[in-house]
Design a protein around this nucleic acid. Structure first.
Lengths: 235, 235
DNA sequence: TACAAAAGTTAGACCAACCTAACAATAAAA
DNA sequence: TTTTATTGTTAGGTTGGTCTAACTTTTGTA
């Protein structure tokens, strides 16, 4: 059984490797993320190496072992499931869920996680649009392209939103948008970056700010697989 | 902000004072409950005294301060709300909820507790029949008559258990008992105080120890109200 | 290539929560 | 009332996670 602290180190390592894409991390970087001194991070790395959760040699690169990665992904799964619960069932706003989920992710009970997942209807994305790993640790490919990135004349499909504020969500509804809706980008103004989009045959004009808060994939993409025409950035 | 450990000491002190009725506790008793050595409990008591959460003098009696009691009751509130959630919404059986709630009770977020309470519909009793303190720390009247107190030939209804250990709860299930089940006390042995009881037409033999851990009311009682024929002791 | 800056490591210390072993005070029994 | 048993306390030690300060290795650039 890992301590709360050890779990946080594994989670931080996963975050760094996923975000950098280089699949390894540095002591300083890790220490900064955990708000801890490099010496402290170094101590912990030695301990995690001992437990075979990280691959690491002195002055060398740090990366999670398979086992370490598995544990880290499971913590992310718990975090995102709890965020979804707080948002969907307990009326938390999207910016309030993180801190509480940060605590809840450390609750140890496999049954709890699976039952929560079932209760929530096996969601694939959390309130921030981030993918929720399934019980086998498989993470859906995550598309980070926004409506604003789509070129004029192209079609895309909405998969998530970045902003979860009520005002934004009401705006989304007003424009006739929803998850899995297909969107055609009709035109874009150079002057003020306003977009004209078409949803279900109805045209609307939306701002850059709005467009940047709508995550999309190209319509040929299947959620969970790599984009066939490489337009979608994989996170 | 209190540590996980400090919270557990406060909760244990509340439990001891409530169960003994004498409103004070001993170092050994506390240590036993927390599965810790008396020396350790003693260290913590000094620390909690320093924080003004317990009233305590060397070799004297230990009791929670008003502030300490308030915190302890709030932890119990959280514990019982989570138990209710696990039981009602996540399909946990009533003997599985305790251990997970033991972790969840330490999550720090006033908003979470209040929203959870609202989500659950402001329940007054948890799956074990124990009363859930409200947000002001007020606890409903609680019936504390045990199965062992019921006279031979009388019927009663199970409302709660005193012992929350998994082994006891599993035994309860094995005997075919559950909350709101009606029990007939068929006979009682003078020699070893064994009881023969009948639940849903099935007879079982249970020990004095077992019977003393099952709280009952007479079948005419309504939970939360005083017993109409005064057979039920109010705690 | 050399050397300064950045990154990483080690040694030694602190605190919280635990321990054991020895001791002190109180309660119970002879 | 004296002795014994129980209960409570203190002193000193261990471990996990943190720190500072000093040191080493690697990296980047003059």
């Amino acid at each position: 059984m890992l301590s709360y602290t050890e779990e946080n180190y594994l989670k931080a390592l996963l975050k760094i490797t996923l975000e950098s894409g280089t699949s390894d991390a540095g002591t300083n970087e890790l220490a900064t993320l955990l708000i801890v001194k490099p010496a402290t991070a170094n101590d912990m790395l030695k301990k995690l190496k001992e437990k075979k959760l990280v691959d690491y040699e002195k002055y060398g690169k740090i990366r999670l072992s398979d086992e370490g990665q598995k544990i880290a992904v499971d913590i992310v799964r718990k975090h995102r499931l709890w965020e979804t619960f707080l948002y969907q069932n307990l009326e938390f706003s999207w910016d309030e869920v993180h801190d509480v989920a940060e605590q809840l992710e450390h609750i140890q009970s496999a049954k709890l996680v699976d039952k929560l997942d079932k209760f929530l209807g096996y969601p694939e994305f959390d309130p921030h649009g981030d993918p929720i790993p399934n019980s086998n640790g498989e993470i859906k490919v995550h598309f980070k392209k926004t409506l604003f990135d789509v070129e004029v004349g192209n079609r895309c499909m909405m998969v998530a939103v970045k902003d979860n504020s009520t005002s934004f969500l009401q705006y989304v509804v007003k424009v006739g948008l929803g998850i899995n809706n297909e969107i055609l980008v009709v035109s874009k103004q150079d002057y003020d970056a306003m977009l004209v989009i078409e949803v279900n045959g109805v045209q609307s004009s939306v701002s850059q700010k709005f467009a940047e808060n709508v995550f999309v994939i190209c319509p040929n993409c299947e959620i969970g697989k790599a984009c066939p025409n490489l337009q979608c950035e994989i996170h």
